[in-house]
Design a protein around this nucleic acid. Structure first.
Lengths: 219, 219
DNA sequence: TTGCCGTGACTGAACGGCGATTCATTCGGC
DNA sequence: GCCGAATGAATCGCCGTTCAGTCACGGCAA
């Protein structure tokens, strides 16, 4: 018998004064709390070495509670990706729509992707490392969000080619994959290394310079 | 876990240092056979989903035999990586030593790394995916072979900067990480995708073009 | 207002399967 | 016969998942 009672409801942070009276709904912020805890735990130990009980503990819920919100441990990881990648894609699409100049779009793409991870070392670690933990997840994603992502990058390149801003002797798809890899690799080494906020920012700027010149037409 | 490594003199391959006459009677090429089997199995199912018994079966040995050559399942992956990366590093160093022209060295680097994987889809998969499976392995490697590798790449860049062949407004280290990422990402998508022999070759050529121009000085 | 239910979110100890590792035994060359 | 290599069935600890209970809350009747 544990003595201490768990704080039921999210109202621990009492700010919810006049909020929903329907407090006991399962749709609390519990799900999000679990996801956040999962990021921390997965980042620290990796998916397979992480115990469901650790996530539960970090989230401040009981082990069983996790299964009220997710089907399985796998599902936690999967949902995490789904959720975070979705956000990233939306942000990218919105931002890129505002910028017509191809070189500037490439720069924006790079800055956005790295900028979103900067200051979120743990998330960066989960995304760059754990994505590859389960082949299943990767293969599955390989045909959904991930490809969608690559597609977005490739379109930035091919648009630039069509308008004559970029050389056209390169496959947009290959270029996109390489760019994705470059960003991913940078994020990975950063996450495993110092992981200091701001570190990625400078790298982003340099990388943009490099790619823009690399893509420039011969003239 | 285990820090000590038995170097069980699997003299099948490496005619490296101190080529000992094959005096070991029973120490066949078993070690190498196990490693080869591990590549197949890991590539197919991923490290964590692979069973030691499966590797044993694929290698044509008993489960217990694996523990005569390796400390643990982890050690199999680690040894695999150690072994294969070593070969790659040696090949790269040898080849790069022959080539003095900086742009050509970059091209060579790219062609070699991708060329070695081309036609070895399974190995590519293990290296690009499974390397990230255990954070432990990755972190540990992060300070050994992996850094050695990045160092090599960075030196190609900084040498070119010193001689004035490359622009010097980029950090050689950042550039190296990005290049590594680009190669890794290309290999990854290739391995997960069609994985056809020859596919990487064309990509390598394009990537080289891109990077060489990206690194070129303002001119 | 008070007290009594019904509901269902939440809990966490216990279960059960699984698979890495072990080790008593066998094998085969010298 | 001796010795080390090889075997593979048995072990055993671990951890994802379950589920029988707990209890907070809101509703409702008196």
């Amino acid at each position: 018998m544990t003595e201490r009672r768990f704080i039921r409801r999210g109202e621990a942070g009492a700010s919810e004064r006049g909020a929903k009276p329907s407090s006991r709904k399962r749709t609390d912020d519990k799900r999000e709390r679990i996801l956040r805890a999962a990021v921390k735990v997965f980042a620290k130990k990796g998916f397979y070495a992480s115990r469901v009980s650790e996530i539960a503990k970090a989230a401040g819920v009981a082990d069983g509670t996790i299964y009220l919100y997710f089907d399985s441990k796998d599902d936690v990881l999967e949902s995490l990706f789904e959720d975070r990648t979705e956000r990233l894609l939306i942000a990218l699409r919105t931002e890129l729509a505002k910028e017509p100049d191809p070189p500037a779009r490439v720069r924006r793409l790079i800055e956005l992707q790295l900028g979103l991870l900067d200051g979120q070392r743990e998330l960066a670690e989960v995304i760059t490392i754990n994505l590859r933990q389960s082949t299943r997840l990767l293969r599955q994603y390989g045909s959904k969000r991930f490809l969608e992502y690559l597609e977005l990058m490739a379109s930035v390149v091919s648009d630039g080619q069509k308008s004559g801003h970029f050389r056209d002797d390169l496959s947009a798809r290959v270029t996109a994959r390489a760019l994705f890899g470059a960003l991913d690799g940078l994020a990975l080494t950063w996450a495993l290394g110092d992981g200091r906020t701001g570190g990625l920012e400078k790298a982003a700027s340099q990388l943009a310079e490099l790619w823009i010149r690399g893509l420039s037409p011969k003239g």
